[in-house]
Simulated assay, not measured.
Amino acid sequence: MSNLIRLNADGVAEIVEDQWTRVIPPAAGEESIRKQAGKVVLFKLTGEASYTPEQIADTVIPATGKILVPLAIWQTRKPELQSRFAQSEVGIILATHETAEALQAEFNDINTIPLVAIFVERFADGRIFTLGNWLRTRFGFKNELRAIGDVLRDQLFFHKRSGFNSFLIRADRSAQEALASLNDFSQPYQGAVDDVPVWRRVNRT
């Protein structure tokens, strides 16, 4: 069964089949242990390279169908992907240590990208929420914005509030159970991408 949840045109969440194939570079060799403030860092830092040149060169890209490619793959192998991008068959994966500015710099119009997926390697901070919010508000992205990777039930409501409209639930969890989490709160007090603050919806005059 599919683990992809998507909001339809009416904002109703439903489980749908995933039409996109995620392109995953081969694993790198042994990585050195990184530390920050004396502690082991379990996630990539902003500005850190996503993949090595060898990983990028060795990545196998399906010849047909809709594909989701990491930003680093697009940047390096753009010539072979350009014709498929023109047919709306290429979406971009942005990792949480990458920036919305780096994504925008690759395209004259960010809304020519049919799908942007934000990948969480291991949920350890709120960068995915910031990226979603900025893509919707600062950069004006209007197409499908998907959360992928370490995506869990209790995060979905906040992903939606940050501008995401599709969510690929982690493979070891149930999308059916996760659906209910989008209704965990009926009236959030704070403002977000998906609504204005509740106090602004009350006429006090």
Rank of each mutant, 00 (worst) to 15 (best):
M1Q: 06
S2M: 07
N3F: 00
N8G: 08
A9D: 14
A9R: 13
V12M: 12
D18S: 07
W20M: 03
V23S: 02
I24W: 00
I24F: 01
P26K: 08
A27C: 10
A28L: 10
E31T: 12
E31K: 14
E31Y: 07
S32K: 15
R34P: 00
K35D: 05
A37Y: 13
A37S: 12
V40L: 12
F43E: 15
A49Q: 10
S50L: 09
P53C: 05
E54N: 08
Q55I: 01
V60Q: 10
I61N: 02
P62C: 01
G65V: 03
K66S: 09
K66T: 03
I67T: 07
L68E: 00
L71Y: 05
T76H: 12
T76D: 12
P79H: 08
E80L: 08
Q82F: 09
Q82I: 12
F85K: 01
Q87H: 06
E89M: 03
E89I: 00
E89N: 02
V90W: 01
V90H: 02
V90I: 11
I92Q: 01
I92W: 00
I93T: 00
L94T: 02
T96W: 03
T99W: 06
A100V: 03
E101S: 11
E101I: 10
L103E: 02
N108T: 14
N108Y: 08
I110N: 07
P114S: 07
L115Y: 02
A117D: 02
I118H: 02
I118A: 05
F119R: 13
A124T: 13
R127W: 06
R127P: 00
T130K: 09
T130D: 05
L135Q: 04
L135H: 03
R136T: 06
T137M: 13
R138K: 15
F139P: 05
F139E: 10
G140N: 12
K142S: 13
N143E: 13
L145G: 11
I148L: 05
G149H: 07
V151D: 01
D154K: 07
Q155E: 08
L156K: 08
F157R: 04
K160V: 10
K160E: 11
S162E: 05
G163T: 04
S166A: 10
L168A: 01
L168I: 00
L168S: 01
I169Y: 04
R170A: 11
D172G: 06
D172C: 07
R173W: 09
Q176E: 15
A178K: 06
N183W: 11
N183K: 14
N183L: 12
S186E: 14
G191L: 06
D194P: 10
V196R: 15
P197V: 03
V198S: 15
V198R: 15
W199D: 15
W199L: 14
W199R: 14
V202D: 07
N203Y: 13
T205A: 15
